[in-house]
Nucleic acid binder design. Sequence first.
DNA 1: TTTTGAGTTGTTCGA
DNA 2: GTCGAACAACTCAAA
Length: 479
Amino acid sequence: MTSPAIVWLRQDLRIADNPALAAALATKRPLLLIYILDEETPNKWRIGEASRWWLHHSLQALTRDIKAKGGDLILRRGGAELVLLDLAREAGAGAVFWNRCYEPHAVARDKALKHTLTNQGVEVTSCSAALMHEPWAVKTKSGDPFKVFTPFWRACLQTEMRAPTPAPKRLSNWSGAIASDNLEDWNLLPTRPNWAAQFDAVWTPGEAGAKRALDAFVAERLQHYAGARDQMGVEGTSRLSPHLHFGEISPVQIRRALEIALIHDPSLQGGVDKFLSELGWRDFSTNLLFHWPALPEANWRAQFDAFPWREDKAGFKAWAKGQTGYPVVDAAMRELWATGYMHNRARMIAASFLIKHLLIDWRRGEEWFWDTLVDADLASNAASWQWVAGSGADASPYFRIFNPVTQGERYDADGAYVRRWVPELAGLGNEFVHQPWAAPAAALADAGVKLGATYPEPIADHALARARALSAFVGLPKS
DNA sequence: TTTTGAGTTGTTCGA
DNA sequence: GTCGAACAACTCAAA
C-alpha cells in the first residue's frame, strides 16, 4: 500500500481552490484528510463561542462535500502537534500538506512541526491559500512592510496574484483504518440556553453556502455596493466575512468572480474596485499581525500605553447587552448578539462608543467581539479595534469621535436598523428614533416608550463624553 | 539624506 | 440650510 499524504485542514474548509489539497492530489498518493480541534495548547485566542457554532456547521458541510467525492474527513481533538505527529506515525504518512495560517501561535506551531516531520523523513509542503498575497510578498521599496493602507494597496494591485485552482473531481481516499471523533461529541453548539437559535435563519456555513452568498452579492448588490455598504438597515454588504475567515471561499476566487461579472457588465467597475479594496484591508490586517505579532494585545503606537482608560463594569455591561440608551449603538450590539454579526458601519459606531464615550480599553471590546462574532478573525479584529482607538497603524485621528445620533440619521435615515433590533422604539417617528430623550412627552407616550423603564436613558452625555475623550487624547505623550 | 505630499469611514462651529 | 475650515502634529513612502 502506498503511504498516504496527510492534508491538514485548518482555516481552509473548502475543496475548490485549495492549494494544499491540489498539491497532495498531484503526488498521486492516497489522501488522509484531517481536522484537529485544539483546546489543549494554551492560547489566549482560542476559538470564540459564536465561531464554534460556525465551525460545527462548516465541518458538517465539509464532511458531506468530501464524502460526495469519495473521500473522508478524520476529526481528532487534542494538542495539534501531538495529534498530527501521532497520526503521521499511525498511518505511515510520507507527506503532509497544509495551507498557511498567520496567527503568531500558528506560525510558531507550524514551524516546529515542519522541522520535526522533516527530521522524521516526512515531506512537508505549506501553501498560500488565505490571502491575495503572502505577508512577505508586498514590501516598500526599502524592503519594510507597509504601515499605511493606500500605498500597500497600490503595491498589491501591481503584484501578480496566484490563479484559483479548480475543484478536484475525485478524492482518492487512503484505505487504511483510521479512527475519527464524532463531531457531535465536540459540543461546539450552544445548549442551555441555545443563544444561536436565530443563526440558522441568517447563515449557511460551508463551501456551497459561501458560493451562494457570493453569487447573490454579485448579482444583486455589487452594482450599488459603494453607496449601499454604509446603509445599516439595508443588506448592501457581501456578508462573506465568516466564509472568508473559515476559508470556505478564497479572496482569489472572489476576485475571479468579480472579473467575470465585470466583463459582462462594465458598469460594475466602481463596486468591484471598492469591494476588492475591502479584501485588501483583510490582507493588510493580516500583514500587520504577521509583522507585529503583539497586535492583539499591545498598542501598536506605544504612546497609547499612557492612555487613562476607565474601569467601568456597569458601562461595559450596558454596552455589551445593548442598553446604552443610544439606539444605534444598542441596535448594533443586539444584532451582534442575535446573529453573530454586525454591520461594518455599526462596528465602527459601537467601537467608537466604547472607546471614546466610555473610555474603556479597546482590548475589552476586542475580547467581546472575539467571543460573539461568527467572523471573528484575530488580524481583522485587532487591527480594526486599534484603528478605531487611534492606537493602530494608519489609524483614525484622535478627534474623530462618532456622534451616534448623527451617524444614525445619516446611515439609518428611515430608522429601519433601529426598529429591527430595538423594537421597543419602533413606534417613534424618524426624527426621534435616534434620540428618544429629545422626544416630547406626548410622542413618547404615543410610541409606548417610558425612558428609564421600557428603554434606558443615555448612559453618557455625548457632548461631555466627547470633550472628555478629546482631552484624554491630547494628554498623551508625543511620539 | 532630505524633502515632499499624503494619509478609509467625522464633528462642530461660524460665516 | 449649506459650506468650508479647524480640529494637531506626526509618520509614512517615495523621489
